[in-house]
Design a binder for these strands. Structure first.
Length: 405
RNA sequence: GGGGGGAUGCCCGAGUGGCCAAAGGGGCCUGGCUGUAAACUAGGUGCGCAAGCUGCGGGGGUUCGAAUCCCUCUCCCCCCA
């Protein structure tokens, strides 16, 4: 094998590490190595502006394109978001007002540009072209694709087979997304593996409109913190890119051991050999997965916040979760100097009702200044600030004040 | 247009007149253990100090007593045409 240039190494890495499908591989490789900056499309759904590490996988891939001098084009799906999406089984995507869409899009972009270089990116609003579409344009678009082809998409096929409803609107969505590629003359479109079909429709439609078909690249769907389902807000197994450093760090530390390989490969730039070595050592029992998680957490929090924030988060985690110490900073809660313990707990927001507070005490989960409490009906008198602890990791500093009663 | 099924606690889902504050699972919380907020394990999980109150889509009714029966409204789904 010939010696590869540095650029070739980067390109090959882009096409393999954290990448599932590439269509058409050799063509894309050649174009990535070429002089012309490629227009790399990412479609964004402003219905749900909550970005988690699953999206981050995709953003990182875009960053790789940028590092090679290519150009990212973000399409805000504002037009489709306002129509709504009667998607399959789960909750329907609601119709949003223009204001909601704009606000969501802004939130999305704020998070997006934490990762992707804003100077090599362009933001485009889908309504720029669909806002002008008339019925004739729609008919023309729909004439360029067939129902049979649409029904080859896995979820459509399945639902059609079982007799579940598929609205025509839904069938239209892949075409609309495909037309976006026509509108911006995309060279490449990227998305999660679940998007493969839609991305390929883009190729067909572009050809129909007399354009060079885009190449397509998919990234894996990141498994969530439950270690089983794909990461998603609706499954509650996500780590948001905007979460505070401590929370993010803690969530990464609590991820099941068996997802570490994926997380390291998809969320860090660590060399493959390094990752393989760690996995071997963990399997052999010579390396504690906890320590790997800590390194992983440091890397991710550093990237999404800052190295300083990551270090602080690490220290916090150590104190609270490993050494079981009280954190340095904790929320302060004004309380009456004399009250039932359960009132303190509820005041601090650690229980939603008195009964819940009682249960916590009876289960042995409540400490006041380090002393475990056992009487749910106890009345305490505080002569100065006291530290209330509920469970292993919830703390508050109680500040007694006479006027607050 | 016709016929049928369904709506239960944060979620899924049992229950078809009293033993139902409502099985089971998930989630979440707490204890234990530990290698971490992993895994495992035990328990808890409407409100109220209590008597008790609220509660099974909304409203009304039958009954000593209703998640369970009747009427009505709203919404969802399926089949036939």
């Amino acid at each position: 094998m010939e010696h590869q240039s540095e650029r070739e190494v980067l390109v090959d890495r882009l096409l393999t590490r954290g990448t599932v499908d590439v269509v058409v591989r050799e063509r894309l490789r050649a174009r990535l190595l070429g002089d012309r900056p490629l227009r790399v499309k990412l479609g964004v759904d402003p219905t749900r502006p909550d970005i988690h590490l699953g999206h981050y996988v995709c953003f990182r891939k875009l960053r790789e394109f940028q590092a090679l001098g290519h150009h990212v084009v973000v399409i805000i799906g504002d037009w489709t978001a306002r129509i709504g999406d009667p998607s399959g089984r789960s909750t329907q995507r609601p119709m949003l007002t223009a204001q909601e869409v704009a606000a969501n899009a802004q939130t999305y972009l704020d998070q997006f540009f934490k990762v992707v270089d804003v100077n090599r990116a362009e933001i485009v609003w889908q309504s720029t072209w669909f806002g002008k579409f008339n019925l004739e344009d729609v008919i023309r678009l729909t004439s360029k694709y067939t129902v049979a082809k649409l029904l080859t998409r896995e979820d459509f096929a399945k639902r059609y087979e079982e007799g579940s409803p598929i609205s025509i609107t839904e069938l239209l969505y892949p075409l609309l997304q495909a037309y976006d590629s026509v509108a911006i003359q995309a060279d490449v479109e990227i998305g999660g593996t679940d998007q493969l079909f839609n991305l390929l429709v883009g190729r067909d439609i572009m050809r129909e409109y007399g354009l060079e078909p885009q190449d397509v690249l998919t990234v894996p769907l990141l498994v969530g913190t439950d270690g089983y389902l794909k990461m998603s807000k609706s499954y509650g197994n996500y780590i948001g890119v905007s979460e505070p450093p401590e929370e993010m760090f803690g969530k990464i530390m609590s991820v099941p051991d068996h997802v570490l390989g994926d997380y390291l490969r998809l969320l860090t730039d660590l060399p493959d050999e390094q990752i393989a070595q760690w996995l071997d050592e963990m399997a052999a029992g010579t390396l504690n997965p906890r320590d790997v998680k800590e390194r992983l957490a440091l890397i991710i929090v550093s990237d999404l916040h800052s190295p300083q924030a990551a270090e602080r988060a690490r220290e916090y985690f150590h104190r609270v979760h490993r050494l079981r110490e009280v954190p340095e900073e904790l929320p302060e809660v004004p309380v009456p100097p004399r009250a039932r313990v359960i009132d303190f707990i509820v005041r601090a927001g650690f229980a939603r009702s008195n009964n819940e507070a009682r249960r916590l005490i009876m289960q042995g989960g409540v400490r006041l200044d380090g002393e475990r409490l056992d009487d749910p009906e106890a009345v305490m008198e505080l002569f100065g600030p006291a530290i209330l602890q509920v469970g292993k990791r919830r703390f508050a500093r109680l500040l007694p004040s006479a006027q607050d009663s």
